[in-house]
Amino acid sequence: MATIDRQATTLALAHALSAAERGLAVIPLSRTKLPALRSPHRAGSEPAGPRCHGECGRFGHGVYDASTDPVRIRELFAAAPWATGYGIACGLPPYRLIGVDLDTKTGTDASVALRELALRHLFGIPETVVVLTPSGGRHLWLTGPRDVVVPNSAGRLAPGIDIRGAGGYLVGPGSRTDHGVYATAPDTARLAPAACPSSLLRLLLPPRHDSRPHRPTPGDHGRGLVHFVLSAHEGQRNTRLFWAACRAYENGLGPALADPLTEAARTTGLPEHEARATIASAARMTGHRP
């Protein structure tokens, strides 16, 4: 039987109720980060049938138990006195949370991978709520559109980047686990979850099966130029940047791509002042004002 840490449970309940006041639906979690209440439909206990998502009225349906009702939340925690944390359901109104989980246990820097994705696909990483995990990872909280369902995924975008979408949950700040406590990054505690950039949102959705041929867009061309700079090796960084900047200005994308190309060049090791000077030279060469 699970050991009961009443102080941890009391703190978890307090944090969960505070989150619910902000419109976030919550469930109690155990120290293992799993839902604290076991399913009432465990294998062999009932006849096989359609999967229950709480229609039976009992607790133990994981994220489908999530609620913003303080009375129900207290009942959930009373039924799980061993809970030391709480989960926040993703995909539900009003925020329709999308969690970007940047892990550190894969041997790669998921934060760097996300920045490279941002450069290649021309989106910015907005200022938003960031939750620090005990293992050194980070959870970015983003919001999704009303009519879009973002699925859960693990490592599909890049190694170490997991997505928590509809049917998933994020471990809430203040939760205590076997490995430590989750906490909001101090400089983001005042923020509301930011809207997910449209280019990132497209990456999170399953690919469409469309028989029509894809027609290149200016965005495709811009991403190609940024990727061309990102793949430069030492000795060719300036040359590639100059070529890409010339093509950008020739295609009317120069002003829009100046910052992404600069950041891409910095990622390869080129100093920012040198990168901007190269882009300015490309602008002049193609008859544009830098």
Score class of each variant (00 low, 15 high):
105 K>Y: 07
170 L>S: 04
94 P>C: 00
154 A>Q: 14
144 G>C: 05
168 G>P: 07
101 D>R: 02
173 P>G: 05
113 A>F: 08
95 Y>G: 04
96 R>T: 10
169 Y>G: 08
163 I>N: 02
159 P>S: 03
109 D>Y: 12
103 D>P: 03
107 G>Y: 11
183 A>Q: 08
147 D>Y: 04
97 L>K: 04
105 K>D: 14
166 A>G: 04
98 I>N: 07
158 A>P: 10
162 D>Y: 05
134 P>E: 02
127 E>L: 10
154 A>N: 12
153 S>Y: 04
107 G>K: 12
142 L>S: 06
184 T>H: 01
157 L>W: 11
156 R>E: 10
100 V>R: 01
171 V>Y: 01
132 L>C: 11
171 V>A: 07
125 I>D: 12
160 G>Q: 06
137 G>P: 03
159 P>A: 02
94 P>E: 10
106 T>Y: 00
142 L>M: 10
136 G>K: 05
131 V>Y: 01
114 L>A: 08
96 R>Y: 07
155 G>M: 01
172 G>V: 03
109 D>E: 13
106 T>A: 00
180 G>D: 03
122 L>G: 12
142 L>V: 09
113 A>N: 15
124 G>H: 09
111 S>T: 14
176 R>G: 01
176 R>K: 13
95 Y>E: 04
94 P>T: 01
181 V>S: 11
136 G>S: 05
153 S>V: 06
183 A>K: 11
115 R>L: 13
181 V>F: 11
150 V>H: 00
137 G>N: 12
183 A>G: 09
172 G>L: 04
159 P>F: 03
166 A>P: 00
112 V>K: 15
169 Y>K: 10
141 W>R: 03
104 T>Y: 01
124 G>C: 11
129 V>A: 09
102 L>E: 04
148 V>G: 10
171 V>E: 05
154 A>C: 10
97 L>I: 10
111 S>M: 14
122 L>N: 15
132 L>D: 08
181 V>Q: 09
159 P>M: 01
162 D>L: 04
97 L>E: 05
